[in-house]
Amino acid sequence: MNSSLTAQAFHRPPGPVRIAAIQTVSGPDVDANLEAVAALVAEAAAAGAALVALPEYFALISADESAKVRLREAEGDGPLQAFLAATARRHGVWLVGGTIPLRASTDDKVRNSTLVFDDQGRRVARYDKIHLFGFRRGEEHYDEAATIEQGGEVCCFDSPAGRTGLSVCYDLRFPELFRAMGEVDLIVLPAAFTFTTGRAHWEVLLRARAIENQCYVIAPAQGGRHPGGRVTWGHTMIIDPWGEVLACRDEGPGVVLAELDPARIAAVRESLPALRHRRLG
Rank of each mutant, 00 (worst) to 15 (best):
G78K: 12
V96L: 01
R126Q: 08
N112K: 04
D119W: 10
K129C: 13
H131A: 12
H131E: 00
R122D: 00
S105N: 09
V93S: 03
R137C: 13
Q81W: 11
G121D: 03
I130F: 03
Q81P: 06
K129I: 07
K129L: 04
D119C: 02
A88Y: 09
D107Y: 13
R89A: 13
R137S: 14
G92Q: 04
S113C: 09
V124T: 06
W94F: 00
N112R: 10
G98Y: 08
K109C: 13
H131K: 10
A88H: 02
R89M: 10
I100E: 05
T87F: 09
A104G: 14
A85H: 15
F135S: 11
D119G: 11
F83R: 09
S113I: 00
D128P: 04
E75G: 10
F83N: 05
R123G: 05
R136K: 15
L84W: 12
F83V: 03
R126E: 02
F117G: 06
A86H: 07
R90H: 11
F133G: 05
L95R: 00
V124M: 07
N112Q: 12
K109Q: 14
A82G: 11
F83I: 02
K109D: 12
S105R: 12
T106Q: 14
G76R: 07
R136V: 05
L132I: 04
H131W: 06
F133K: 12
